[in-house]
Simulated scan of single mutants.
Amino acid sequence: MARVSQEHLDARRRQILDGAARCFALNGFHATSMQDILREAGLSAGAVYRYFGSKEELIAAIAGEAFAEIRAAFDAAAGSVPPPTPDVLLGRVLRRMLEERVLGVDRGSFARLVVQVWTETLRNEQLAAVLDEGYSGLRVSWAGLVDAYRDSGLMAADVPADHVARTLIATAQGFIVQQALFGDVEVGVLEDGLRGLMSMQQPKIS
């Protein structure tokens, strides 16, 4: 019997995950059946169950990939030297997440999928633990970015670094929610808005 290559196994797993992601993005986790996923992936039940024993395992795998993609986007943007300003930084994060095809879905579908993953963490302790670990790591990483801003003379030291990091993360999260709810949200809008806020100055008191 011919041995199946690892490349083939990886491609088949990718085919299943991408098909499931398209179904979940369209109909949500709980309104999607395994039969829906089989049809979308174009595979038999035996082929799918060889990789994933249940729909819950598929949800966990997709959630893990979504979390990893978000973390990678943040880390890549934060790793530049010198550090980019927040408007450029968040623009890079969101372009990577929304304008590159992730999990075999378009930008709107990916945003909806991410929001569903966040919602699922409210009822799934395993996913909640993964999200908490990822979020904590992001806060530490981006607090380090704030230190780089300060070392470069771009930011004052009168606000805790973690508070700035959480605000940057919340801004990106809010933009993803806007894309999921309203669609067709251009990343340039966020960049312009942040640039405008960054230009504000305290009025001089005569």
Rank of each mutant, 00 (worst) to 15 (best):
R3W: 08
S5A: 13
Q6T: 14
Q6G: 14
R12K: 15
Q15C: 09
I16L: 09
L17C: 09
D18W: 02
C23S: 06
F24W: 08
A25P: 13
F29D: 08
Q35F: 01
L38H: 10
L38C: 09
R39F: 13
G46R: 00
Y51L: 07
A63P: 03
E65K: 03
I70D: 13
R71D: 09
F74D: 11
F74Q: 12
S80K: 04
S80T: 05
D87T: 11
V88L: 06
L90T: 12
L98S: 05
L103I: 05
G104K: 04
G108I: 11
G108R: 05
S109G: 13
F110K: 02
F110H: 04
A111K: 00
E120R: 12
E120I: 09
T121V: 06
T121P: 04
Q126D: 04
L127T: 03
V130A: 11
E133A: 14
S136G: 15
G137T: 02
S141Y: 00
S141C: 06
W142C: 11
A143M: 03
V146E: 09
D147Q: 11
A148L: 11
A148E: 12
Y149S: 09
D151Q: 13
S152L: 13
T167N: 11
T171S: 13
Q173M: 06
Q179V: 14
A180H: 06
G183M: 12
D192R: 11
G196W: 00
M200R: 14
Q202P: 07
